[in-house]
């Protein structure tokens, strides 16, 4: 909510006065860096994608995106007892389950993902599949440099209940509400994702192909440690261009929605909080430039994150 201050200031100016044009100015200082995007969830294998950062004026076509992923690194994951070297894989050669997991990470439809070749690192060795209470150390050796990071899969906190409520005066469109009891006297950070699994009558497939995040999907318990309270989230799929303004961001009556409610350690939260702040305030003069504090040592960008999700399903009826 505090961030609304800067958004509102921005809106005032945008509304009252400003006009915008594209300009070409010199922005000095680009240094190419390795970007590590790795995650491990309870019961699932680690997946790590490696890419390179690009100059702000570098080409941004499809080939540039695909070519930004790098191969040839040595990637290992250790749970403190067992160290496993991950295998290279490419998206056009994955099982349906692996494809779904990668689709959720990249936000690309599995069908499309299988037609392009995005390569990363994973393993089928269950010794380093995610388990609650364990810490996992990632090591990446690439072109003579070593990058390391450790993340923990913390104990999950399930939601007490979830329900759908129409957003009055609307009757057929609303938000998904939840009730949470935050554990007292401990640090807790949460992530909210949703997936509408109702079948789209046009495509015959689930409306959402993978779990999606809305704006500001992470929060910690700085202001509600030990409290029980209600909160709601909007529908991340509800912002398409064809959606009328009056029902944007609402879930539709009758839809079946799966909520993935995850917990994470403090450093992962810190990264994600700053990341979503940058996404929300990028270009806003009322916000300070936000570099995202990676939890990876060695000079790389990105994140190595452990999550402990719990799932709930809600049908959008009162």
């Amino acid at each position: 909510m505090m961030k609304n201050i800067v958004y509102i200031g921005f809106m005032l100016f945008a509304f009252l006065f400003s006009c915008t044009k594209e300009v070409k100015i010199d922005i000095p200082g680009h240094k190419e860096k390795l970007v590590i995007d790795g995650q491990i969830e309870t019961g699932l294998p680690p997946i790590v994608l490696l890419s390179l950062s690009r100059n702000i004026y570098a080409p941004t076509d499809v080939n540039a995106f695909l070519n930004s992923f790098v191969q040839g690194a040595v990637v290992t994951v250790s749970d403190g007892n067992t160290t496993v070297q991950l295998d290279e894989f490419c998206s056009d050669n994955l099982s349906p389950a692996e494809l779904d997991q990668l689709a959720s990470i990249l936000g690309i439809e599995p069908a499309l993902l299988s037609t392009v070749s995005i390569c990363g690192y994973t393993t089928t060795n269950p010794a380093v599949f995610g388990a609650v209470g364990k810490s996992y150390t990632l090591t990446v050796n690439y072109q003579g440099e070593t990058y390391t990071s450790t993340t923990e899969i913390v104990a999950p906190t399930p939601l007490n209940s979830i329900w759908w409520k129409a957003d009055a005066p609307l009757t057929h469109h609303g938000f998904v509400w939840a009730n949470l009891s935050d554990p007292v006297n401990q640090y807790d950070a949460y992530q909210w994702e949703s997936r509408i699994i109702s079948i789209d009558t046009l495509t015959g497939a689930p409306k959402d192909a993978f779990f999606k995040k809305t704006r500001g999907p992470v929060f910690d318990d700085e202001f509600f440690d030990g409290l029980t309270f209600d909160f709601f989230y909007d529908n991340p799929s509800g912002y398409g261009e064809s959606v009328p303004d009056s029902i944007r961001g609402r879930y539709v009556y009758g839809d079946t929605v799966v909520i993935k409610f995850s917990k994470m350690d403090a450093k992962v939260y810190e990264y994600l909080e700053k990341k979503y702040t940058q996404l929300a305030t990028g270009g806003n003069p009322f916000a300070t430039p936000t570099n995202i504090p990676t939890n990876i040592e060695g000079g790389a960008l990105g994140l190595w994150a452990g999550f402990s999700p719990v799932y709930d399903t809600v049908i959008c009826v009162p």
Partner: peptide, 13 residues
């Protein structure tokens, strides 16, 4: 000065 992709998002350095 730079852009990169993490998760589903394009981020800036």
């Amino acid at each position: 000065t730079s852009w990169y992709v993490q998760g589903q998002d394009l981020l800036y350095e």
